[in-house]
Design a protein around this nucleic acid. Structure first.
Length: 293
DNA sequence: CGTTGAACCTGTTTGC
DNA sequence: TGCAAACAGGTTCAAC
């Protein structure tokens, strides 16, 4: 469910509600998606939330150093949350019965409870000491909203993977997922199976702008809700009403009217317009195009 | 490097 | 009607 716009939406909601709050106690249900459950139960109570941020698809709750650590130099830490496919993170009043599959309860000093719910448990929860944060995120690519067009083009060069595989790869860019890849490619009129390195500079430019345009528009509408996603207030987003490709198999393309098709690219359902997003020419066997000097 | 398929887990939809 | 297969916003790993 949650890609960059959904995570950004959750983070904005949590930021206004959690900043400055203190975590009073912790209660855990199933823990197979938690890195070190014992450490969370032991080290989290008493910690104050200094800052809420997003890193790619991760939600970051930066914690203040514990008061009066050994010789006064308590280490800061960060509660890192990945929502996987079905994760939800939202503060609730304790009277509100917990929905099924709620596996983490963090009682707050304002009487409310921050709850983590995740039907499939593809998410992840980890308490990372501040000094280890850098290593934890090592290898993730640039944020698609921060990268420059020049940088984007440079990183595309020489990559022989299919463009969709590359966009989905969090080591290439952090934050895109299946929905926004397809929407960006539709905007840019690029077939998902096109080889990245073979995009013209014109296409690369359109893709760069497509990605930015889609993400900013989706954030404005508080993300896409297909079936699970709700923000930190429990509200669904509305960007699913603006989808032009994703989930629209056999429906007419908004540009040309030709029926949207679904194919598997990079192991994922990929929706595209066969008219606007023309397929790459199939390369014949043995016709590998590598440095032929 | 890049691709494919499976695995992780639960729930919903689709097809025969 | 009923049951099995397919599919779902993500990530990771093995094998080729």
């Amino acid at each position: 469910m949650p890609e960059l716009p959904e995570v950004e939406t959750v983070v904005r909601g949590l930021r206004s509600q959690l900043t400055g709050r203190c975590i009073v106690s912790v209660r855990l249900g199933k823990t197979d998606f938690i890195d070190d459950p014992a450490a969370i139960e032991r080290d989290l109570p008493g910690r104050r939330i200094a800052e809420v941020a997003r890193y790619g698809k991760f939600v970051l709750l930066h914690l203040e150093p514990p008061a009066g650590g050994p010789d006064g130099v308590g280490r800061g830490a960060c509660l890192v949350v990945h929502l996987g496919m079905t994760g939800q993170l939202a503060p609730r009043v304790p009277e509100q019965p917990a929905t099924p599959h709620t596996h983490a309860f963090f009682a707050l000093d304002d009487g409310r409870e921050l709850r983590y719910t995740d039907i499939r448990r593809f998410g992840r929860l980890a308490l990372i000491p501040q000094p280890e944060l850098r290593a934890f995120f090592a290898g993730l690519g640039a944020d698609p909203l921060e990268i420059t067009e020049e940088e984007f083009r440079t990183r595309l060069a020489g990559r022989r993977a299919m463009i969709k595989a590359l966009l989905l790869d969090q080591h290439f860019l952090r934050g895109l997922g299946n929905i926004y890849c397809d929407e960006s490619l539709w905007r840019a009129r690029i077939h998902p199976a096109r080889q990245a390195a073979r995009l013209s500079s014109e296409q690369a430019r359109r893709l760069y702008r497509g990605i930015r345009g889609v993400l900013t528009a989706a954030i404005r509408l508080r993300g896409s809700s297909i079936s699970d996603f709700v923000d930190a207030e429990g509200r669904p987003g509305e960007y699913q009403l603006r989808h032009r490709a994703y989930g629209r198999e056999k429906k007419p393309c908004f540009r040309c009217g030709v029926k949207i098709r679904r194919v598997i690219v990079a192991g994922r359902s990929s929706y595209f317009c066969p008219q606007c997003q023309s397929a790459p020419r199939k390369r014949r066997r043995g016709q590998s195009r590598r440095k032929r000097q």
